[in-house]
Design a protein around this nucleic acid. Sequence first.
DNA 1: GATACTAGTTTCCAAATGTATACCGATATA
DNA 2: TATATCGGTATACATTTGGAAACTAGTATC
Lengths: 131, 131
Amino acid sequence: METQESIIHDKRKCPTHLSAGECTKALLPVQDALDILHGKWKLQIILSLTFGKKRFKQILREIPGLTPKMLSKELKELEINELALRNVFDTLPVTVEYELTAYGKTLQPLIQELHKWGAKHRKKIIGRSKK
Amino acid sequence: METQESIIHDKRKCPTHLSAGECTKALLPVQDALDILHGKWKLQIILSLTFGKKRFKQILREIPGLTPKMLSKELKELEINELALRNVFDTLPVTVEYELTAYGKTLQPLIQELHKWGAKHRKKIIGRSKK
DNA sequence: GATACTAGTTTCCAAATGTATACCGATATA
DNA sequence: TATATCGGTATACATTTGGAAACTAGTATC
């Protein structure tokens, strides 16, 4: 078992924080993770799929305001990142089922962490002034 | 000590995933956390401040491509969320120092988690095909 | 023949976001 | 007097994002 590399607060590794240096590069994976979860619909779609396989129209009906264009786009992104799987059945009319992959389910602990921090933040900030 | 509430995968709590139900509401804190870290510059600015107090122009010089307008906007957001503090000194010309608050530093473990997942994702997906 | 169902795509448009550039007042330096 | 410094702001523009609506093919139903 290797120790988790600390990417911030390590002054021995990044004492002067040079602009184009190693430290900025270390942020790329963080950005990746953020990008994957970012957007108005991503989380809701992922959440919907955690409760089982879903068909296209079914997801559309579940999430109010979601348009087919956006759903199509978001599902493609999930597919590209191997977080969701697309299964086509040649019924009439055609049936398409989406499901989270095992890999997609590894997002869960991360979402939990975001939830934990976000919930505290709601209590601290939003609860008292914002909006 | 109370047990952390599970927001997904709990079929007893959210068996049918009704559209406007409690489950969607549970995603709001997650969105909050994502929003705070989102953007091209936020992480870089936070990272910069983890290495100590910084002045406006200093941050600008450190992060290539960053414009004063964006930096100003991002710093204001950090301030509003009480993640960063703005200190004005009446020197000539005026000196303004920004620093992470203790609360701002609580983001660190979250960023670590994002980094952990993102690094694995890089190896799995980006390393072999994307971009 | 008109309508509805499936899973999307296409087109157009509005709003949000981000960038480039110039500028501000006050002061110190060359 | 010209220039540079500080911490920003103002304006104009380009790019990105997202939404509304109509439309596709193939078949089944009314």
